[in-house]
Amino acid sequence: MLVRDVMTVNVIAIGPEMPIRDVAALMEMRRVRHFPILEDDEQGEARLVGIVSDRDLRAVDSPHPSARPDVHVSDPVRSIMVTPVATAHPDDAAEDVAAWLREYRVGALPVLDGEQLVGIVSPPDLLAALALPAAIREPSSVLEVEVGNRPGCLAALLQTLAQHGLNVSQLTTTRAEPEIGCFIVRVNTIDAPRVAGNLTREGWTVLWPEPDAAPPASPQRGPEVEEVA
């Protein structure tokens, strides 16, 4: 998954000369926490020169130890912006960016394609994207199956499910021990215990749900379906 797929593209950028007071008002109005700051270079091209966060703004005229007594709310935002700016590229992996945010201890990364600002990526964007594999796509039951960590083990499980006429809509893994993989599979049936029972009888170790005990001794003498007038 790439940054370009998860980033916020409607990014609001400001100029470095905007007074801090106005920046704070704009941030409140637009309900965001970061503004990338753009300034034209000699060729007249907009360049990213800094970033300001709600925390930087709150440090102005504040009793907090991090306060900046030298700065006034009428000063330009240039006086408090953070520079240089940590950035991401649209083709960075979203998973990597999640780690960088922790590493740099920042709340957002502007996304630059070359010198051009194309978006901004923040934890809510990443959380939504990274939680996607757990989202429910279609009506399905969960099976948790132990699968050996060897070539073909997972293929065999999927083959078995296919033979039972089941469609797999999701597949995730939690690999606690190196020798055993535990796969979480979502299949399109309400009757997961029966599937678990069938898998168990075929030699699989099913951790969830508890398999049904035996092929149900279902009475076959119930009324048959007939044509109804």
């Binding site: 429910i136 279609e138 009506p139 399905s140 039951s141 969960v142 979502r186 049936t189 309400i190 997961a192 969830w208 749900p209």
Partner: peptide, 9 residues
């Protein structure tokens, strides 16, 4: 809960 039972929602 759909985390442990059909249909998931």
């Amino acid at each position: 809960s759909g985390r442990t039972l059909f249909p998931g929602t």
